[in-house]
């Protein structure tokens, strides 16, 4: 007969209490309610949690599972025993070597750290685009907004808004929705000239240090410009 597995705190990839093996009742509520169940052969939330508590963290970390899981939190919400599944699966992303993070996630995270936005849009191009579009919007045939411009680095503005870099990069007209609302409401608002990125890829890539830096930058912009309200439409 095989020896029973001994679960200890030693040699764990991340901080999992050995008691977790008993806390999880293997009821499968997590897997039943998970739209990702069946998408990665061999894995679902229940199996991944069992593997992790039994000391097979590395297998889960190396698998596609933590990345096909969208971190929606439904498993953790329904777990009758309060197992922190969402937190554990994100810990699996953190445990991936940075050069093995799939797709452009980590590249975008690093780009944001270096250049202030995920796609590396230069400051001059960004400011020119906003100024150029402001003129077009003012004279728009359907809904003209005379007097409109995008206020950049306006100190003391009531509202500061972040921007999803995909918009200046590929869907610039989508920025106009917020501009129309601010114009109609006659709001005092602004955009920062730097670190205006409204997407935090460190959250998804499992890069906590960069995630915090990104949060701090967004808050710092609001503090520097003395804005009362931060709008983060992501």
């Amino acid at each position: 007969m095989d020896e029973p597995i001994k679960i200890t705190r030693q040699k764990r990839l991340f901080d999992i209490s050995p008691e977790m093996a008993n806390v999880c009742l293997t009821c499968g509520a997590c897997s039943s309610g998970c739209p990702a169940t069946g998408l990665v052969p061999g894995w679902d939330p229940r199996k991944a949690i069992r593997a992790i508590v039994l000391g097979m963290e590395q297998e889960v970390v190396d698998s596609k599972w933590p990345w096909v899981c969208t971190l929606c939190g439904r498993c953790q919400y329904v777990c009758p025993m309060g197992v922190l599944l969402l937190k554990t699966f994100r810990a699996c992303r953190i445990a991936r070597d940075r050069d093995k993070v799939p797709g452009p996630l980590q590249k975008g995270t690093d780009m944001c750290f270096e250049r202030g936005n995920n796609l590396g849009i230069p400051k001059d191009d960004f400011l020119f685009l906003l100024a150029d579009m402001s003129t077009e919007v003012e004279e728009d045939e359907e809904t003209p907004m005379p007097g409109f411009h995008v206020p950049v680095d306006k100190e003391g503005a009531n509202v500061i808004i972040t921007i999803n870099s995909k918009e200046p990069f590929g869907e610039p007209d989508d920025m106009i929705f917020w501009w129309k609302i601010f114009y109609a409401a006659k709001e005092s608002w602004t955009v920062s000239s730097e670190n205006w990125e409204g997407v935090n890829w460190g959250l998804f890539s499992g890069d906590d240090a960069n995630m915090k830096i990104q949060c701090e930058r967004v808050l710092e912009n609001a503090r520097r410009l003395k804005c009362k309200t931060l709008v983060y439409p992501e």
Binding site: P35, W67, C72, R74, P104
Partner: peptide
């Protein structure tokens, strides 16, 4: 509610089929 399927940075991941 159910996730739309694109949470967790899925647009920047190479798993479009999933």
């Amino acid at each position: 509610n159910l996730c739309c399927g694109a949470g967790g940075g899925a647009w920047a991941l190479p798993y479009d089929e999933e």
